[in-house]
Simulated assay, not measured.
Amino acid sequence: MPRYHLNVHDELNPAPAWTSAGLETLAAAEREAARTAAAIGLHKLPNDGVCQAVVEVSDEHHQRVAVMTVSMRIDRPISPPRTFSPWAA
């Protein structure tokens, strides 16, 4: 039975930063890749404002069979200046 693995690379480290345990089906590996990508965004994005990573699914022969690219950015536009009101509490 084939086994699939996830390899995670971020924008700073081209070598895999994390590798999963074997998953039994490609569909299971792709679902886990999606969960991993979401977790990367939730973990990294609030701190840095920018997140770029790649989650690769490989088979038991270390051949890539799917690649998920994670790319998110928070833009924080400057809010308009508040006007002073003498009646504001």
Rank of each mutant, 00 (worst) to 15 (best):
E60G: 11
G22A: 15
S85T: 08
A21W: 05
D48N: 14
V57M: 14
L26D: 06
I78F: 05
D75K: 07
V70A: 02
E24P: 10
R82S: 13
V55L: 00
A33R: 05
A29P: 06
D75W: 07
E56F: 01
A37H: 00
G49A: 08
R31S: 15
W87M: 14
Q63N: 14
E60P: 03
V65Q: 07
H43T: 03
V65P: 01
D59I: 01
A53R: 01
L45G: 13
V70I: 06
A28M: 05
M1L: 11
R82K: 12
H43W: 03
A33G: 02
A33W: 08
A17R: 14
N47V: 04
H43R: 13
R82Y: 05
T25A: 01
T36W: 08
E56M: 02
P86Y: 03
Q52W: 00
A39R: 13
A88N: 03
P14Q: 13
P14I: 09
L12I: 03
I40V: 15
V65Y: 01
E24N: 12
A39M: 07
E32F: 03
P77M: 04
G41Q: 06
S71R: 13
G49T: 09
D59K: 02
Q52G: 00
V67Q: 01
I40D: 06
S79H: 07
R64S: 06
W87G: 11
R64I: 09
A39F: 07
A37Q: 01
D48A: 15
M72P: 00
M72F: 06
R35N: 04
V8A: 04
R35D: 03
L6S: 06
N13A: 12
M68F: 01
N7H: 13
K44R: 14
E24Y: 04
V55D: 00
E32C: 02
T36R: 15
S20C: 07
A28Y: 02
P2I: 02
I74L: 15
N7L: 14
R73E: 10
G22L: 05
P81R: 15
P80G: 09
A38L: 13
A33P: 02
R31W: 12
Q52R: 02
H61L: 10
P14K: 09
A33D: 01
N7K: 14
N13C: 09
M1V: 12
F84L: 12
T25G: 00
P81T: 11
R35H: 05
I74A: 07
G41M: 09
A38E: 15
I78T: 10
Q63D: 13
E60C: 08
A15H: 10
H9S: 11
S79Q: 14
A29F: 07
A21I: 04
A66M: 12
S85R: 15
A34Y: 04
F84K: 10
H61W: 05
P16E: 09
A34V: 12
I40N: 03
L6H: 11
P2M: 05
I78K: 10
P46Q: 12
Y4A: 06
I74K: 07
S79C: 05
T69Y: 00
E11C: 04
P80Y: 10
A89P: 08
V8M: 06
A34D: 13
R31F: 11
D10G: 01
P16R: 06
V55E: 00
T36I: 04
V57Q: 13
V54H: 00
D10E: 04
R3A: 11
C51R: 06
Q52Y: 00
